[in-house]
Amino acid sequence: MICNKPEFKVFKICWLYFSWILFVLIFPFKLLCQDNYNGQNKNWNLSTAIIINFCSVTDKNFSALTYRGSSPGAAVALRYEGKHAEHEIAALYIANGNLNTNSSPKAKLNAGIFNIEYVNIYSLYVSPNNSFNCKAGAAIQFLNNSRKFNQFINNDFSFETALSFGAVAQLQYALGKNNNSIILTNRITLPVFSIFSQPSYSGSSAADKEAENGTAFKKLFTNNQTGSFSKFLRVKNQFAINKNFGNRHGISIMYNWEFYKIKTARSVIASNNQAGIQYNYKF
């Protein structure tokens, strides 16, 4: 069968990359230009948020136990809303914090999170009175989570770095009809295909030691592999209640929930619950 030939597999991978580039980069860019050309309603929105993150992680490399704890963080996002499409680039940083496990009070897992994502969504449905809308599209997500175990030697460091391409769905509901009404937004992101890296199985090779001190980008190219839901499952749900004050300013209360599961020889299951307050500025 031609499908099993290595050349065809290369073709399939190339096609996958090409289609994602087309879908996520070129097509939205075309729509962005189209919006600007037509002079349609458009606005830019800059958001900053302070966040508290509640993390639970089971890293089978360290233990079958789940470590839990909280640490502060911050997020920043730049969003463009046009008639056809909405684009958003967002970054999230959660400072390193100590996670604990009930079975061993002295055992601490120092964990930190860094995420960047680009989302572009298109309007699928707007209710006749504009109070409800539904959007869907695609996202590119970059994730870099690192952990260090305080009581171990040699295999004390672990990380996941992943570049994911996924689908996004967003529902928005306005409680009221004027500009200053309260808006509820819920967005779900589900990566479909991911390139991700972890330390080697033993975590003590020369490449692992280099990766430990290297940048997130460098980690992505260390010991990487590709996978979909069966290998790398990630779900992210973002919920926000927004209240605008005038035409430019807004405050949101946000609650994000993220779950991911890596099913490799170095199995990791983690969930993050993030609560925060966000300030939005339209320009």
Partner: peptide
């Protein structure tokens, strides 16, 4: 050899 560590379910190392 290089020693490595693991935390057991009951908190023992």
């Amino acid at each position: 050899s290089v020693p490595a560590n693991y935390l057991l379910l009951n908190g023992w190392k």
